[in-house]
Design a protein around this nucleic acid. Structure first.
Lengths: 238, 238
DNA sequence: AGCGAAATGTTAATCCATTGTCAAAATTCC
DNA sequence: GGAATTTTGACAATGGATTAACATTTCGCT
């Protein structure tokens, strides 16, 4: 039985004592909490590490919480954001929700309520999607993830290694979507492992060798610069 | 192009006029709304049909909302539940959240806020694999942010780069509003990067090439002199 | 109206971070 | 210990982001 990795929360709050209280309580709930004291630090943190939730104060030095949320949303639409703020007019709440917040709690807040709402958001966002794919076919190729095999017309059967199978499955399960390098690391490698970014590319190279008729002009395994990779079933050749 | 099935909401509220108002507004948002006037009817409805969200009043004849929620949770732990109620003590909210509510809004509530929270809950819970979390369509164009693609009738599919996607998204999210150059720089580029303002124009040029039938006479990407840019869905041609 | 300044449109060229590639090193697994 | 697998590091190649330069439009001003 493997231990479940602690969910990670980015807490953005400049008020020292409040931040400490919240952090402590979240940690008691089993979360791993990173603290950022202003908007700039928050954006930096989001770029560098992977979080399951961001708790954002609105009134921050430097960059306000709303802007931080907007910036996050342009790049990452999945990451749940919870606003925690003294601004409590309906207009503020609506603004927050409109720019992509998932919840909005106003100060002074009840700690237990915060924890419950946090649990909700984290639970919802980390829920597994359906059955893991065990087999997948496209254009005559056939991949069997549980057996770690791939059949390639003309080439015969290829044995996939563990990591190959894991990464391939991830890309196929998210077919047509761009999967970010961060996400790949999170899922295939795990949170606290940081292999050099060359590592991922190497697997892509391998996949291209396996599946691409012309590896230098990929039809299936596309790279999206600055973000990650995308597996897509080929479109009819032009 | 397949039509997306309307999301289904079960609204449990005994107060006639309020129920009607909420129902109407949810329907305007494109939801299919079923109304139940008491807890018993609510439970029956949940058994008979599939819903994407339940909006529950707490004070109900026959069976109160809390009990309804608990019953639902015994059978279905996924179905999002939103409480909508006059009971607004912290204790009530906590109780609601504890027994499995996903959100808790107290009367009197702001209608827009309700709609936003409903959207949130439904969107997150109905996301299936491969379904984009964020897509935007207008006039036959289709922009898919999770794929970083735009479909243009007649031209096929265009790949969007990182910055293109970010800026496009910002403009689209603010459709019909003017977004200032300063704001664009802040949100898309960040706070310590100052590219020449020509840079933004270049992206606009690109967008016009992608989307405008006649790039020199923009219908979608308008510049507002001295301020910034505005994306607007085309109005009927004059 | 006509002029000039300022803002925006447009193109092409440059720069540089990201990715492709491969061989060698490190690690893991029998 | 030896084979398979994974990771790293060096270098090349690529393509997206940015800028510079020039064209055009807009708008205030007389």
């Amino acid at each position: 039985m493997e231990a479940v990795a602690a969910k990670r929360i980015l807490l953005v709050e400049d008020e020292q004592s409040l931040a400490e209280t919240v952090k402590l309580n979240l940690e008691l709930e089993g979360y791993h909490v990173t603290l950022a004291e202003d908007g700039r630090a928050a954006l930096k943190a989001v770029k560098q590490a992977r979080f399951n939730l961001v708790i954002l104060d609105v009134m921050l030095p430097e960059i306000d919480g709303f802007s931080v949320c907007e910036s996050i949303r342009l790049v990452n639409s999945e990451l749940p954001v919870l606003f925690l703020t003294a601004k409590n007019s309906a207009a503020d709440r609506i603004h927050g929700l409109k720019i992509g917040a998932d919840d909005y709690l106003s100060k002074p807040f009840n700690l237990e309520e915060l924890l419950l709402r946090v649990n909700n958001l984290v639970r919802r966002s980390t829920r597994k999607d359906g059955e893991p794919l065990s087999e997948y076919s496209f254009d005559g190729y056939r991949i069997n993830f549980s057996r770690h095999e791939a059949e390639v017309p003309g080439k015969g059967t290829i044995n996939l290694t563990k990591k190959e199978a894991a990464l391939l499955r991830l890309l196929v399960e998210r077919k047509n979507e761009v999967v970010s390098r961060e996400h790949i690391l999170e899922i295939v490698w795990g949170y606290d492992i940081y292999p050099s970014t060359r590592t991922i590319d190497n697997y892509i190279v391998t996949f291209r060798k396996y599946f691409e008729p012309d590896p230098s002009r990929p039809r299936y395994f596309h790279s999206v610069r600055g973000i990650g990779y995308k597996f897509s079933e080929a479109v009819p050749a032009g």
